[in-house]
Design a protein around this nucleic acid. Structure first.
Lengths: 347, 347
DNA sequence: GCACCGGGTGAGAGCGCTCCCGGAACACCG
DNA sequence: CGGTGTTCCGGGAGCGCTCTCACCCGGTGC
């Protein structure tokens, strides 16, 4: 049943159109330098036979695959027990599709998998890679770099902006620091003075950057007003409890993401603090199912997740195209997307 | 920079090991029928040269790709603005990885994309496909069937269990109907008598099956106690309001998923109904970030999403292996996974 | 009218691999 | 000791495609 009749080859198309294989190939690949009547004949033959090029044969000679790998580390997947994951992938997928490229998904967990992924990438099965690697100590970036595969990172990689083997790393991220500043300034504008921050896991650059943004505004802040969370609701609860204990007079909280904000909100309600009257709360991400469903609805810093994915793909594809055209290797630069403050009821 | 030094070929490995290409190939592919010393020599050569087989060349002759497509339609992606998506993929990924197969992700949106996906699958780029297609009128299954690619569906496809061109469709799903029955029986056990149901979009089999389960227990139920939702919180709110209007005496609600249950919960609180005292509420899915965070925490029917993904992959792989071994084509049968009722505070 | 040119076309090599098949080496039995 | 397997290895064809290169042919310039 499954393709007993083997699929037609370019040879067959050529024969049917009465041309050589070379000409048929030219037509299939755009038809430049072939006279119109022949183009037409070949096109028709393709149509009639239902010809689809054999990608394997093509890759074998061109060494292109029209495929890029998307690497997502397991810890991320856990964090992505939220729409992040789907949205980024959607953005990436759209862009790749428009470019006739396939998306090979690699989810990893644990060290062994890193090796596997490294080997896969080094194996030259894909033209490039999009990597989500948010942890400082992640060995993945190193492996990937060693594999010599064009790569764009999602989120600023952990090793800082300094040169790494003089190879510029390209990444797409949102303006975590600026967004955090906006949030805190908004709280200040509300007249709040005892503003606390619930951080994310500080080994992730996004969390670190948001903390930096908080500090930009709250210079010389009382350290007791900073509690470490982990981007989860439970972590948010824990951190909020700590904060209330250390500084019962707290009148605003900037949480590093919506999930921890939701946790904080719950503790505040439990303790009888009114939001936003007694304590104003701001989150980060604008993760709709969460931010809109909290009580009260969450004021938060929005980042366009899907756009990040789309841009990552676009950057990578552009780089690949350039490599193909042997054009000027314009230093590919990272992109930092702006954030916007979304006002709802909590602050 | 990117692989100026081209990667070593099997030829190179053979030369270095002092054997023929054929023998080297044999070793790389398991080493059967090659004497130990030679195996060892080839292995070392592979190691030293960092040889990785060229998948394109291999596929060209074997017609296998060690890759399967995962097709997720856009409407699903929207529904999957929750952990579904990530979890299923994780399950699939684990299984495929263990089988050295790659995961090619195809996200679709709109009709044009269906054509694209159909062509891709028909193009013989992958060995099989895992398809999430939950809508009754989805043309995708037809296209896929036409493409003649071994496929396993996620969720019972819409066309019923009847034969479709005498080709049995294989799917993996959770026991939607049984789970619904359990939920409703639990409510009955609580002494509730005016039990309502907030459905999902009824063009999806999961929603339809859950409704059937509800009806199994609530025979001759007042139609006013059934309100159509759409699996979203907003839909849940709307449905709950309708229910309260039509039957103010309602004392229990079984919502077709956690998201709509969350919406219902909010409306109940807003109307001053205590949960579970006045109205008991049960959801479906046990989507942790939602079910655990509602107020009160949601009693719900758990399905093992990741396991569904894993099973889909396993079923497909088994089928592919069998095809390769030319073994008996044991009628591949669908799998329906059990659900469990998770008791929290809402019922 | 002839050398020249350039766009359009076809012949053919070869990408890296698998797998069939024939031959070498060896064991065993009559 | 010759015949018959058996096991192991290498030669070589060929998967379907792209791409270089040589060739053909109509048009120009002198």
């Amino acid at each position: 049943m499954t393709g007993t009749a083997s699929r037609p080859t370019l040879e067959a198309v050529a024969a049917r159109a009465g041309v050589s294989r070379a000409t048929a190939s030219r037509v299939v690949n755009g038809g430049d330098g072939v006279r119109e009547p022949l183009v037409e004949r070949v096109r028709r033959a393709v149509e009639e036979l239902g010809y689809v090029p054999n990608q394997a044969a093509r890759s074998l000679v061109t060494r292109r695959h029209d495929a890029v790998a998307v690497v997502i580390a397991e810890p991320e997947t856990r964090v992505f027990a939220d729409p992040f994951f789907a949205l980024q992938l959607r953005g990436i997928s759209k862009e790749l599709t428009a470019h006739d490229s396939q998306l090979v998904l690699l989810l990893t967990e644990g060290r062994d998998d890193h090796v596997r992924v490294g080997r896969y990438l080094a194996g030259g099965h894909v033209d490039g890679a999009l990597v989500f690697s948010l942890h400082l100590d992640d060995p993945l970036p190193g492996l990937i770099h060693g594999a010599g595969v064009p790569t764009v990172f999602g989120g600023r990689p952990g090793w800082g902006d300094g040169p790494r083997d003089a190879v510029p790393t390209v990444y797409v991220d949102c303006d975590n620091r600026g967004g955090a500043r906006d949030a805190v300034r908004h709280l200040v504008g509300l007249g709040r003075t005892r503003i606390a921050h619930i951080t994310g896991p500080l080994d992730q650059t996004s969390a670190a950057d948001r903390l930096d943004g908080f500090r930009d505004v709250m210079v010389d802040v009382d350290p007791a007003l900073i509690a470490e969370g982990d981007f989860t609701p439970a972590g948010g609860e824990r951190a909020m409890r700590e904060l209330l204990e250390r500084r019962p007079d707290v009148d605003a909280v900037f949480a590093a993401n919506d999930l921890s904000a939701a946790g904080a909100l719950r503790v505040l309600r439990e303790r009888g603090r009114r939001v936003p009257d007694d304590v104003a709360v701001i989150g980060f991400d604008d993760m709709l199912p969460v931010a809109e469903q909290t009580d009260p609805p969450l004021t938060t810093v929005r980042q366009d997740i899907e756009e990040i994915g789309r841009l990552m793909a676009r950057l990578l594809l552009r780089r690949l195209d350039r490599a193909a055209d042997e054009g000027p290797v314009g230093a590919p630069s990272s992109v930092v997307l702006p954030t916007t403050l979304v006002r709802r009821a909590s602050a």
